[in-house]
């Protein structure tokens, strides 16, 4: 009927019948429908298979760690604790400090590279080299980033130097390419029209970038940065190497070993004291806290952009 109407004819019963005939003729054949069903069944199974480990991990962490998810966990370090009790405050603080420092290093550098690539690079040789370098950095194993930071700090400050800052440098090597890629993608989404409009108002290119391109892209840039943080916050290997481990609080990024959540989980699990159950519980509780932090970051990456856009608009 609608076919007839769009053709500008009065729909008649015959037309309706015609339409019905062609519609039923275009119905997928039995073979195709069967294939369709099998394919969608396979996809559902695959999704379920992928979801099972996730569910198991959450279940395991909850059942084993929930008991230790008490106030003491968040108010105590492991200083002088050998059996029950103790907490992960030192590791939580360490993770916040190291992650914050990493973000402070990686976001400006990564964003600068992305701005160069989208706004200035074009077809230039240096842009090609930068892109290649980012591709390589993405695939650097995190343990290698750890070794590189270890070597760097050993050279600068003497062999065997460990500190939160060294950890942050190692993590920054992992985070920078993530930030570059996400930022580049977001900056390319800013319409060229806006850049032209800005230039046509009589302002230099870098000012157009600062005042028009970056604010327009800000929500996406923020989301990319938060996802970058979520990517590195669970890294263990490089931190084991260069930030080390301690039972005590350490608020100084520049000096001394600094505990972090992933390393805390690892050491609770790998070097248990006599009361193994207490160590197990702390490890699982640590895992719960870490997962919660990552989930919060992921949600923030999704929730922040519209919020920021709204704030800017109502300002």
């Amino acid at each position: 009927m609608s076919v007839a109407q769009t053709l500008g004819k009065q729909p008649t019963a015959a037309d309706a019948a015609d339409a019905a005939v062609t519609l039923s003729a275009s119905r997928p054949s039995l073979a195709r429908r069967t294939k369709n069903r099998i394919a969608s069944g396979a996809v559902v199974c695959a999704v379920a298979l992928a979801a099972i480990p996730l569910a198991l991990v959450i279940w395991a962490a909850l059942t084993r760690g929930i008991e230790r998810l008490d106030l003491a966990l968040f108010t105590n370090s492991m200083w002088g604790v050998v059996g029950q009790g103790g907490g992960l405050l030192h590791a939580l603080v360490g993770t916040l400090l190291v992650t914050g420092a990493t973000a402070l290093i990686a976001i400006p550098l990564g964003l600068a590279a992305a701005i160069y690539l989208t706004e200035y690079g074009g077809q230039r040789k240096l842009a090609g080299i930068t892109r290649r370098a980012v591709d390589i950095m993405v695939s650097i194993p995190s343990i290698v980033a750890g070794l590189a930071a270890y070597a760097l700090f050993s050279l600068l400050l003497g062999p065997g130097t460990r500190s939160g800052l060294a950890g942050a440098v190692a993590l920054a090597m992992i985070m920078i390419p993530v930030v570059v890629r996400s930022s580049e993608e977001v900056l390319r989404l800013v319409p060229g029209d806006l850049r032209e409009a800005g230039l046509a108002l009589g302002s230099p290119r870098w000012r157009v970038i600062r005042k028009i391109v970056l604010p327009t892209a800000l929500p996406g840039l923020t989301a990319g940065a938060v996802l970058g943080v979520a990517r590195i916050i669970g890294e263990t290997a490089p931190l084991l190497l260069v930030a080390g481990f301690t039972d005590a609080m350490n608020y100084n990024l520049a000096e001394g070993r600094m505990a972090t959540l992933p390393v805390f989980i690892y050491t609770q699990w790998s070097s248990k004291g006599l009361d193994t159950a207490a160590y197990d519980q702390r490890a699982w509780a640590g895992a719960l806290v870490l997962m919660a932090v990552v989930v919060v970051l992921q949600l923030a990456a999704r929730a922040l952009p519209p919020q920021i856009a709204k704030l800017r608009r109502n300002r």
């Binding site: 806006l194 409009a197 800005g198 302002s203 604010p215 856009a309």
Partner: peptide
Amino acid sequence: VAVRSKVGMVFQKPNPFPAMS
């Protein structure tokens, strides 16, 4: 840059800056 501040331009497609009021 100075030329463009003396000679302004309006484009075919309206293009206000979306991040600005």
